[in-house]
Amino acid sequence: MVTIKKHSGIYTLTTKQTVNVPITEAWDFFSSPQNLEKITPEEMGFTITSEVDKKAYEGQIITYRVGILPGIKQNWVTEITTVKKNVFFIDEQRFGPYKMWHHEHWFEELPNGKTLMSDKISYKLPFGFLGTIAQKLFIKKQLTTIFEHRFKTLEDFFNEK
């Protein structure tokens, strides 16, 4: 389930999902930047434009090209700022469509070899009140759709084994 709340001029999106794999397998999948393309809706035209031949590490810069609106693509640059293996990692936007983007990826080992994955994204939109209108008109829906797609894709990938 995806929730988005507004506070102090920023929005926070949260989502959780349990997958039927050990934490080490979940970590291995999510700490590989190239797997992001596999869980992003195809219609976004998401492509990684930098070399990502290593697992996530602190200081890693990853560049993307992504469709932010139909027919409009934008470059997006993120940095992996913090990594604690099998626990969490954080990516932050350096350049891109948001005024601020801080994405925490958390992993918790559960009984029976399962893993709880949690995402917390704090973001701020540019353009003041126009950004607020954009949030209401399409950004909230777009982010919800992305994470619902991701949820289903991960269910199919991890839980249908």
Rank of each mutant, 00 (worst) to 15 (best):
E79W: 05
M1G: 13
K152L: 03
T24P: 01
L36E: 12
E79Y: 03
L137Q: 06
L154K: 03
D91Q: 06
N112Y: 14
T40F: 01
G9P: 05
S32E: 14
D28M: 00
H7D: 14
Y123S: 02
K38M: 13
P22T: 06
F89V: 10
I133E: 06
V21G: 08
K141L: 04
K140C: 06
Y57V: 10
T49Q: 06
S31H: 09
I61G: 07
L69T: 09
T12D: 01
I90K: 08
W101R: 12
I23F: 07
K152F: 00
T132W: 13
N20F: 06
T144S: 15
K114G: 10
V19Q: 06
K85Y: 00
P33L: 07
L137H: 01
T115Q: 07
K141F: 03
F151C: 01
E25Y: 05
Y11N: 13
I121N: 08
H149P: 09
H7P: 00
G67M: 12
G59D: 12
N86M: 07
K55T: 12
W76A: 02
K161N: 15
D156H: 10
A134R: 10
K141N: 12
I72M: 09
P70A: 11
D156W: 01
H102C: 03
K140F: 02
K85C: 03
V77T: 15
M117S: 05
V87Y: 11
E92C: 15
E37V: 04
F158D: 08
F147N: 03
T78L: 02
K73W: 06
K5F: 04
H149Y: 15
W101I: 08
K38S: 13
D53M: 00
Q17H: 09
K99E: 15
S118Q: 05
V21M: 10
I90F: 02
H103P: 05
I4D: 10
K84R: 15
I39A: 08
W101A: 09
E43F: 11
L69W: 12
T132F: 14
Q34V: 06
I72C: 04
I90Y: 09
W106G: 14
T82R: 09
T12Y: 01
V19R: 05
I10E: 14
Y64I: 00
